[in-house]
């Protein structure tokens, strides 16, 4: 099994670039296996394929991870792993279940950004006494 490791930093507001980055690697024949903070990506050689990668942030209710993941599975998403409160999902771009978005309205899209902000940015600011 052929592996390769890439190193890359991304800031939490750049999750769309992260999705793009993983999709591009997969298209080149490298699928993500593990992602270890602060930025080590372990890829495995695979058949090049158009895939859609999506990241959700900290949405599963406490003690409800299995139900949360089942919802995504029902919609045809494969769950990869969680890193840094982000849940990584993917599905083939030509999947029979064609919806390639995990959020279908602006309200829920915005709520994800708010969750990121609340969890990651606000405590830091409080510590530094900015508020």
């Amino acid at each position: 099994m052929k592996n390769k490791v890439l190193f890359r930093f991304w800031t939490i507001t750049d999750y769309e670039k992260e999705e793009q980055f993983l999709a591009e690697r997969h298209k080149e024949g490298w699928e993500i296996k593990r992602y270890i903070l602060p930025g080590f990506y372990i890829f495995e050689k695979c058949t090049p394929r158009e895939m859609v990668y999506r990241l959700d942030f900290g949405q599963a209710e406490k003690g409800e991870k299995a139900e949360y993941l089942q919802m995504y599975r029902d919609y045809g998403w494969e769950y990869l792993f969680d890193v840094n409160s982000f849940s990584y999902f993917r599905k083939p771009a030509d999947s029979a279940m064609r919806d390639t978005e995990i959020f279908s309205d602006n309200k829920s899209r915005l709520e994800m950004v708010q969750r990121i902000f609340m969890k990651r940015m606000v405590p830091g600011w409080l510590n530094k006494g900015f508020i």
Binding site: M71, F103, D105, S108
Partner: peptide, 30 residues
Amino acid sequence: TISPGTMYGTLSKMEKDGLIRFIREEEKRK
């Protein structure tokens, strides 16, 4: 279309606000 992230979030919120009630679970589906 209602995508999974939107569906999960809306159901959680509506349950917390008391608009809907959890009845039972069937193979990890609420």
